[in-house]
Design a protein around this nucleic acid. Structure first.
Lengths: 156, 156
DNA sequence: CTATGTGCAAACTATTTGCAATTAG
DNA sequence: CTAATTGCAAATAGTTTGCACATAG
């Protein structure tokens, strides 16, 4: 029956945020954001992966527009850009609150990553920022490591 | 008088480390490593910057060789590759000991960076690694922030 | 309608690689 | 000598941009 797809729950707030900047809500922008909402908060995607997944979902968005949209949504704080050591830029859904601690355990051999949180790290970041007179925005700890199976494989 | 330049103090150990792998000590490799020793531990350089500085010092090394050498010296743990958020790969001199904590306060506006150390961060990294069964290699905290002058400029 | 956004292809930047000439050992 | 290394130029990967056409509002 519903031949007109129901507007996404978040579409309206996105629309008004865009309008505030004199910008438009396009299907492409909705598709990119919807993709990140579909896969949930913990998952990191590169521009290329976003493009591929949208193609697979029959949602055609050009790669150039994917890049433009990722930058736009990040500047709106709807996405967050990660800085993982290996591999290019990746993005994930930015959750509401001040979820600014955001740490990764990365296996340098197979690339497997685990996320974790740590209040101790935030405090250390805040102290360091304070000591130098900086205003903290976000802090990210990357732990380069070997995952259990890769550690086992490293006979050496 | 000294028409034959004296061999660098570290040249011999570098030579033997290379020989162990069936590799050679070339002037290019010495020049790149000597540059990092000249500028000291705290300074980060990109491949392009290494190339430029060597040119300025009349020490011609092709950019391709700079890339190859940075990779080689990093694999020998004489250099360490950083993962700073903005800008490409950068390298710095790797100091002897297990100097594996290595943190940056980066101004996201002007790019100015300060380094700091923190035992608390190391502990947090070790705990997280232990919890997931990973073997920790190195941990790097990046604090994205605004430096005092950029924070002041952000009138908003 | 018209300013904003999109798709495409070309442009760029950063990095890697093939290969002939050079050189450390 | 000869295998390793270099320099050059061409190749590649990731990202950005100019421009004509499409479209949200």
């Amino acid at each position: 029956m519903p031949s007109i797809p129901a507007p996404q729950p978040q579409a309206e707030s996105l629309r008004s945020e865009l309008h505030g900047r004199g910008q438009r809500l396009t299907p492409q922008r909705q598709r990119v954001l919807a993709l990140f909402e579909r896969i949930g908060e913990g998952s990191h995607l590169s521009a290329e992966e976003v493009h591929q997944r949208l193609l697979r979902a029959e949602e055609r968005v050009s790669l150039a527009t994917v890049y433009r949209t990722l930058r736009l949504l990040s500047s709106m704080e709807l996405l967050r850009e990660l800085e993982l050591p290996e591999g290019g830029r990746r993005f994930e859904l930015a959750t509401g609150g001040d979820h600014r601690d955001h740490h990764h355990l990365v296996c340098v051999r197979c690339g497997h990553t685990e996320e974790f949180e740590s209040q101790a790290v935030i405090s250390a970041g805040e102290q360091a920022a304070g000591r130098h007179g900086f205003r903290l925005l976000e802090c990210v700890l990357n732990v380069r490591a070997l995952c259990p199976s890769c550690a086992a494989a490293e006979v050496s």
